[in-house]
């Protein structure tokens, strides 16, 4: 039994490897298909034909595509993603500093969103047609129908400008704090590890508004899916059996119904996570958040192919990882998976 399950999870992880290989090929080809000549851009506006050719040679762009690919893979193996033109930094370093910022924002937003949406969905499902149900519907519709940049600006206006309780929306940390020593890149975790609670609190204050903005946007799919899955679970035969056996309300609701309802909710969560990671560029812009979304947009605008390539690769790997985690979570919750 257990070894079967473990074998299945290992097998699923092995299946991710060819996907990663495919991702490497596609991210390489995709960036080669970008319009514009990076060599011309790199050489600068005053460069002559000769100097552009020189730069092209230095960048390795004059070689055949297949050779370029193997050079790229060789560099990748050493963790070298090339140098970003716009920042002048190695792409790997840029990603390492910016990806945690985006991840921290997205994860906190999703945690917040789940903490509100799942109980809300459960409440709405147990009392369909009552005020809780209607409140749930109004809240999620409002959340999803307002664009994130608009919600963000409203929140800044109210909490920073009018009430003055929020800090200025300028990045991950106010300048009066020093960033905590980098361990994970997540300010909240790093500050906690360093025991620097003042910085931790400062980072949290910066995080609240953008996280709430994103959370409001992601509330709708999670709450709706929880409600629908709970309604379906509650009307199934095994809930009737549990009720007829006299099990307590809590046991029936959480032990039996919610655990079955969680399966579709986890699927939704994975999809929400994916699109949030891509879509939070607007939130990052509004709150001057030094995240990966704004970085990618800037790189794309100037045909900074190394940076774009690095971004596409990082995101794709992240999605592969995410799907893997979701599949494994599924297998852990549902014993039927991998056997039928």
């Amino acid at each position: 039994m257990v070894s079967d399950r473990a074998k299945m999870i290992l097998g699923r992880m092995a299946q991710a490897l060819p996907v990663v290989a495919g991702v490497v090929v596609i991210s390489f080809l995709l960036t080669r298909a970008l319009p514009g000549d990076p060599a011309a851009y790199f050489a600068g506006p005053a460069a002559s034909e000769a100097s552009i050719a020189e730069v092209r040679e230095a960048l390795g762009l004059d070689k055949p595509l297949v050779q370029q690919f193997f050079l790229y893979v060789g560099d990748l193996a050493q963790g070298n993603l090339g140098t970003a033109i716009s920042t002048g930094q190695p792409v790997a370093a840029d990603l390492a500093s910016r990806l945690p910022a985006s991840l921290e924002l997205t994860l906190v937003a999703l945690l917040l969103s789940c903490a509100v949406a799942i109980p809300l969905g459960v409440l709405a499902a147990t009392r369909p047609g009552t005020w809780v149900d209607h409140l749930c519907r109004v809240l999620v519709t409002a959340g999803v129908s307002m664009p994130t940049f608009f919600t963000g600006i409203v929140l800044i206006y109210v909490f920073y400008y009018l009430l003055g309780v929020a800090p200025s929306p300028l990045g991950r940390l106010d300048f009066i704090y020093l960033p905590p020593p980098t361990v994970t890149g997540f300010h909240l975790i790093d500050a906690a590890l360093a025991g620097d609670w003042e910085t931790w609190f400062g980072a949290l204050k910066q995080l609240v508004l953008p996280a709430v903005t994103l959370a409001l946007f992601t509330l709708a799919p999670i709450a709706r899916m929880t409600r629908a899955a709970m309604l379906q679970a509650l009307s199934s035969d095994f809930i009737r059996t549990a009720r007829a056996a006299g099990l307590g309300r809590g046991k029936v609701l959480y032990g039996y119904a919610l655990r079955n309802a969680l399966l579709p909710v986890i699927t939704t969560l994975g999809m929400v996570f994916s699109f949030t990671l891509g879509a939070n560029v607007l939130v990052e812009k509004v709150f001057a958040w030094p995240g990966i979304g704004s970085y990618a947009v800037e790189a794309l605008v100037v045909s900074d192919y190394a940076a774009v390539q690095g971004f596409v690769l990082a995101m794709a790997l992240l999605f592969v990882l995410l799907n893997l985690v979701i599949d494994i979570a599924y297998a852990l919750i549902d014993p039927r998976i991998g056997f039928s």
Binding site: F238, R240, T241, R259, I333, R336
Partner: peptide
């Protein structure tokens, strides 16, 4: 329908 009458994941 006894199969449906039992919690499938317990």
């Amino acid at each position: 329908n006894p199969r449906a009458a039992l919690n499938p994941i317990r």
